[in-house]
Amino acid sequence: MPPVLTVTGRDVLFAHWALDPAAVEPHVPDGLDVETFDGSAWVSVLALENRGFGPGPMAPPSWLRRGVPQLNLRTYVTMGGQSGVYFLSLDTGDRLAAWAGRRGFGIPFHRARMRLSRRGDEVSVRSRREGDPPAAFRARYRPTGRTYRAESDTIEEFCIERFRYFLPADEDRRFGAGGGGGGRVGELDREPWDLRPAAATIRENTLFEAAGIPAPTGDPVVQYSPGFTMRVEPLVTGTTGDATPGRLG
């Protein structure tokens, strides 16, 4: 089906932490199962500069593009044999984007005070959400090696090469609740991510605590991507038996 909008972005930091699945399971809706890699659940922070969106398959024209910092906190789940992403929170520096994300897609967007800056190839991002619940994130990162793409059965493929996300039906956290059926399934159409090894220093991160998840204690696995163009297809209602639009994630 044709996309409802096309999103572009650049300077993406992926930071992935391994957690006990039991610590993550209570924070995903009933009907979804936490997916594991090497026996662990994984929760990732994506820091990036959103360069805007255009209607349908059209990327925003260059004269309309403006950089807005964004933070995604997400984990990895399955429903009816289908793999995808479950968003725990998204922070944006754009009030309109936060409103549109919540109203149009039901994604848990929060408005935050954010800043993204560059010095050479190093990117710095700062975010402070003062709403309920409050959260803060500060990091510096830069690419360190050649461009590559995720290989099969690697942590990069597991955490990054996802083409589907799941949302609860309406405000109810149970898949299959509220008027007959299932949650909502979103599909993403894009090329595989161009990745580079990265060096990252995360100075502050309270996104996990804000989501009710224990703060990780170890260092994350990190990657960098120079940018992306992503087409977002319309949300559909799915159940554990029929959520099959598009590619596996």
Results as ranks from 00 to 15, higher is better:
20 D>R: 11
54 G>Y: 03
21 P>I: 02
119 R>F: 09
201 T>K: 09
110 H>S: 06
231 R>H: 12
69 P>A: 04
4 V>F: 08
74 R>Q: 07
205 N>E: 08
120 G>L: 13
160 I>G: 01
20 D>C: 07
34 V>N: 00
245 P>S: 12
212 G>T: 11
219 D>V: 06
64 L>M: 13
211 A>V: 05
127 S>P: 03
79 M>H: 06
161 E>T: 08
20 D>W: 10
130 E>G: 14
215 A>D: 12
162 R>S: 12
87 F>P: 01
80 G>L: 01
37 F>R: 01
239 T>R: 11
215 A>K: 12
166 F>V: 07
34 V>W: 02
22 A>L: 10
142 R>L: 10
63 W>A: 14
62 S>C: 04
67 G>M: 00
187 E>P: 02
4 V>H: 05
141 Y>I: 07
9 G>S: 07
243 A>N: 07
31 G>F: 00
16 H>L: 01
10 R>M: 00
116 L>V: 14
210 A>L: 06
5 L>Q: 06
82 Q>E: 12
179 G>R: 12
59 A>Y: 02
49 E>K: 05
55 P>W: 11
123 V>T: 15
243 A>S: 14
15 A>Y: 02
208 F>C: 06
247 R>A: 15
13 L>G: 01
248 L>T: 13
1 M>W: 14
85 V>P: 05
57 P>C: 09
185 V>Y: 05
48 L>Y: 06
58 M>E: 12
122 E>W: 05
170 D>L: 15
83 S>I: 01
167 L>G: 08
58 M>G: 09
172 D>R: 11
26 P>D: 13
232 V>G: 05
229 T>F: 00
143 P>C: 08
9 G>W: 00
125 V>W: 05
211 A>E: 10
4 V>T: 12
76 Y>R: 01
53 F>I: 01
2 P>E: 15
39 G>V: 06
78 T>L: 03
147 T>Q: 14
193 W>C: 08
